[in-house]
């Protein structure tokens, strides 16, 4: 166990290694570690934020969905109402149109009946004249008996 220059050698080696470690080893490793720590912290922050954002977005989506459902229901209701209205209107119009057509037809029929009556009357009077002439054996002057004929016609 001799004490000798080995002490100095060891001291110098120690100094060199410490210097090397301080200059070339410690800074890069610790800075990488700190950087990673920061990255992880940022990542966790971002994750928290994203979670919150997601929650908000979900809420928003749900409310929008609800709103649009309500709106859709409203629109459908309106549409139904409108459809009913249209149908009712159409029914009314159709009914009115039908009534009108029926009325027109009735009027026409009446007119036709009157016309036929008129024609028949005329023919009856003629037949009456012809019949009378046959009975009398001679012709009857229609004009001479016009008033009689007319009276007859009126009576028919």
């Amino acid at each position: 166990m001799n004490m000798n220059l080995t002490i100095l050698g060891q001291l110098i080696a120690f100094a060199i290694f410490v210097w090397f470690c301080m200059k070339y080893v410690w800074p890069p490793i610790t800075s990488a570690m700190q950087e990673r720590e920061k990255k992880i912290a940022d990542g966790l922050d971002a994750a928290n934020r994203a979670e919150r954002d997601l929650e908000l977005a979900q809420e928003k989506a749900a409310s929008q969905l609800r709103e649009s459902k309500e709106k859709a229901a409203e629109i459908i209701e309106q549409a139904n109402k409108r459809a009913n209205q249209i149908v009712d209107e159409a029914k009314d119009t159709a009914r009115a149109e039908g009534d009108r057509i029926v009325a027109a037809a009735q009027a026409e029929v009446e007119q036709e009946v009157n016309r036929a009556k008129e024609a028949l009357r005329k023919q009856v009077s003629e037949l009456a004249v012809v019949g009378a002439a046959k009975i009398l054996g001679k012709s009857v002057d229609a004009s001479a008996h016009a008033d009689v004929l007319n009276q007859l016609t009126e009576e028919l």
């Binding site: 080995t6 060891q10 001291l11 120690f14 410490v18």
Partner: peptide, 9 residues
Amino acid sequence: NGTLGLSLG
């Protein structure tokens, strides 16, 4: 010597 060198530093 080895340990004394260190502790001397």
